[in-house]
């Protein structure tokens, strides 16, 4: 009777499942980013006011907290994630309209876009090839997230430019760590739901882009 090493078979099955999650995550991420870009273009064409950004962020947070976790294991989750990313795209469009009105606006937007792409591709490539499990970052990133949230709430009312700059810098570092953490969890089988994985990576990219826009806007002397 053939002596089958089931640990190898199970390992191969796990690798196939992980690759499937990874492939589906990047496909859905590409689609949601493209959809967001279309919605941002629609928002810019309609010249939506800048308060639309706050409305879209509130809507997206509520959907992300209450609707997405309940639908992520069904096909309805796809519709919900497109709803969230479309909403954030609409809000982003209103911010971009405001930046385009600045003298160096188009340059700032292009630089932030390129920088976000470089950061995401670089960190994802690193996490995929490093053969390291970055899930030890869990406690650190969630603690950092809570500190940043408290600072964001405080600055909603204090409106201090220096604190705003510090928050943006902290968000870029924190979201960079989240990219390592999320990608590593997909690769190592810690995240098996590609909708939730896409949501995590999308939020990291979105937050890095918004924070870079703010930092470049302030530092260029235009904001």
């Amino acid at each position: 009777m053939a002596n089958v090493d089931y640990s190898i078979v199970r390992g191969a099955e796990r690798a196939v499942a992980t690759n499937k999650v990874l492939k589906n995550t990047y496909l859905l991420l590409s689609a949601t980013l493209a959809f967001s870009a279309v919605m941002a273009a629609v928002s810019m064409a309609l010249a939506l006011p800048s308060w639309m950004y706050l409305v879209s962020v509130i809507g997206a947070i509520l959907m992300g907290m209450f609707v997405l976790p309940r639908t992520a294991n069904s096909s309805a989750g796809i519709g919900v994630i497109f709803g969230i990313t479309g909403l954030l795209g609409l809000g982003l469009g209103s911010i971009l309209t405001a930046y385009l009105a600045l003298p160096k606006g188009p340059e700032i937007i292009a630089t932030a876009f390129g920088g976000t792409g470089l950061i995401f591709l670089g960190l994802s490539g690193y996490a995929l090839t490093a053969k390291r499990d970055f899930s030890f970052l869990g406690g650190f990133v969630f603690a950092g997230m809570m500190v940043v949230l408290i600072a964001v709430v405080a600055n909603l009312f204090l409106q201090m430019p220096a604190l705003s700059l510090a928050i943006s810098a902290a968000i870029i570092l924190l979201m960079s760590a989240f990219i390592l953490f999320d990608t590593s969890r997909i690769v190592n089988g810690g995240e098996t739901n590609y909708i939730m994985a896409t949501y995590g990576l999308y939020l990291s990219i979105f937050n890095i882009f918004i924070s870079l826009l703010q930092i470049l806007g302030i530092m260029s002397g235009d904001d």
Partner: peptide, 28 residues
């Protein structure tokens, strides 16, 4: 809108707390 966002962000803090505790205590 700022007040609404602040309320939702504070709510998010309470949502994040169990996740933070889990990763702090059981994370690698």
């Amino acid at each position: 809108l700022q007040i609404a966002l602040a309320v939702i962000l504070v709510m998010m803090l309470f949502f994040l707390w169990p996740t933070f505790k889990h990763w702090q205590e059981h994370g690698p």
